[in-house]
Amino acid sequence: MGQLNTTRNVARADDVYQMLIDAHEGKTKDESDAFNARLILTLINHIGDEAVIAEALSVAEG
């Protein structure tokens, strides 16, 4: 399948960004890193499609 969505897809970007930052509030750096790993794996499962995940990895590579 493939085709990572790289168009704007979040209606209220500021709200969502705040949810993300708030989720880290009070965590140590190690706890935050572990949290991020769990978050990424959860989102990867939601996406499912290997080709899309590969595209996302390449976007993150920069």
Binding site: N5, T6, T7, R8, N9, V10, A13, D14, Y17, L20, I21, H24, E25, K27, K29, S32, D33, N36, V59, G62
Partner: peptide, 27 residues
């Protein structure tokens, strides 16, 4: 306010350079 918060902030800026989807997060 925190190291993690700065990592995310910098990630948004890095992605925004190439990708329009990240720009709404830039504040």
């Amino acid at each position: 306010k925190s190291e993690t918060s700065k990592i995310f902030r910098d990630a948004v800026l890095a992605l925004s350079d190439k990708h329009d989807f990240a720009r709404p997060f830039v504040n």
